[in-house]
């Protein structure tokens, strides 16, 4: 399976994502810069964390105008898995690929620490390797992770089981409904503020994030086997 790791000026978790899928899982990956226009050679797209364009205007607001985003939108339409972590999640909401928006953290501070995250939906192509209700220990690192959507949208997210991860030991940033990660209606786009790539090896203190990548790979293998 071949992953694309998108690189924007200011991305900083691109190497971590690359390392998780190649060195840890043994899959293929390539870096794809923001000015490229084609992602047809890849099976899954990863939008990294960091501070693309220095978070100028709003986190993700400039990245969503990069030419690679047209290719990301095309990949989403084709049903390919697209995962955005941290700033990647912010870019996905700015691009309208996921609902809602991000505000500054409730307590104004940049937060960088491990948090408890619960898997509330394991019937997605990103979470099938987890058990429902499983509690994960995964780091967050963000200043604008306070997810906001209006009540109507929140109701729809719940009804469609689009909420995938919630903060389960206190809400660190003020997010509506303790939301830490959600998928689009079709289920092939996941945005999450916790960083699974930073919890993908025991040497990092936690392996709880690895199953996100394993799920993507296994789901892809299965669908590929069915097609063959």
């Amino acid at each position: 399976m071949k992953f694309a790791v998108i690189q924007f000026p200011g991305s900083s978790c691109d190497l971590d994502l690359y390392h998780a899928v190649t060195d840890v899982l043994g899959e293929k990956a390539e870096y794809v810069p923001h000015h490229e226009t084609d992602l047809s050679a890849y099976d899954a797209i990863l939008l990294p964390g960091g501070a693309s364009y220095g978070d100028a205007v709003r986190a993700g607001a400039l990245a969503r105008t990069a030419s690679i985003m047209d290719a990301v939108i095309a990949a989403v339409k084709e049903g390919k898995p697209v995962l955005g972590v941290g700033n990647g999640f912010q870019i996905l909401t700015e691009a309208g690929l996921l609902p809602g928006a991000f505000l500054k953290n409730r307590d104004q501070k940049f937060i960088c620490r491990n948090v408890k995250v619960q898997v509330v939906n394991n019937r997605t192509l990103f979470t099938s390797e987890y058990t429902e209700g499983e509690e994960l220990n995964i780091p967050i690192a963000h200043g604008e992770g306070n997810f906001y959507c209006d009540e109507e949208t929140y109701g729809r997210l719940k009804e469609n089981n689009q909420i995938v991860f919630v903060y389960s030991d206190g809400n660190p940033n003020g997010s509506v409904g303790d939301i830490a990660g959600l998928v689009n209606e079709k289920g092939n786009v996941l945005g999450m503020m916790p960083h699974p790539e930073r919890a993908a090896e025991s040497i990092l203190g936690s392996e709880d994030g690895l199953n996100v990548f394993k799920s993507i790979v296994n789901e892809w293998r299965e669908s590929h086997a069915n097609q063959a």
């Binding site: 205007v57 709003r58 607001a61 105008t65 928006a101 505000l103 906001y148």
Partner: peptide
């Protein structure tokens, strides 16, 4: 609407 403002919030 395309750049400076996120009309969601």
């Amino acid at each position: 609407e395309k750049l400076f403002v996120n009309t969601n919030v």
